[in-house]
Amino acid sequence: MKPHTLSVLVENRAGVLSRVAGMFSRRGFNIESLAVGTCEEPNMSRITIVVNGDDGVVEQVMKQTNKLIDVIKVSDLTKRESVERELALIKVAAETGPSRAEILQIADIFRAQVVDVGSKTLVLQVTGDAEKIDALEKLLRQYGIKELVRTGKIALLRGAKTVKSSK
């Protein structure tokens, strides 16, 4: 059992996300994360799904996803060279004083940006792979995380290769 990152190219139509998500839950496949948005092709969207399972399960996931009429292409990026990123926004308690300075220092190390400064809180924006975001979250916990949101992973193949239509 290990996480696989699937890149799913779909028709940009009403209901397509619920078709994909419904098929996953119906067949008992576990979605670790899911991110969806438009892509380079007009009328198409790209869904990046991280799913847990052994190779047999992931093969079934891909085949069943491919069967959906609105799904144009499914690729497993895990076995190929790809860049993977996630973005998180973290609202952390930061009263003026030494803790605020520490938080800013940590943010700096993680190349996180401060996107909002309040009198009692800071909002940090961080991008990276899941482990990096986990690590930052862990470090900030001692100061008090008020709110946290993550986009779910998005991914692209490295180099000139692409995940394009034509099943």
Binding site: G15, G22, M23, R26, L68, I69, D70
Partner: peptide
Amino acid sequence: ITGITMPVTKHNYL
């Protein structure tokens, strides 16, 4: 009905 029948149709349309 498109939502209800999603799991039991090959495809559906509204």
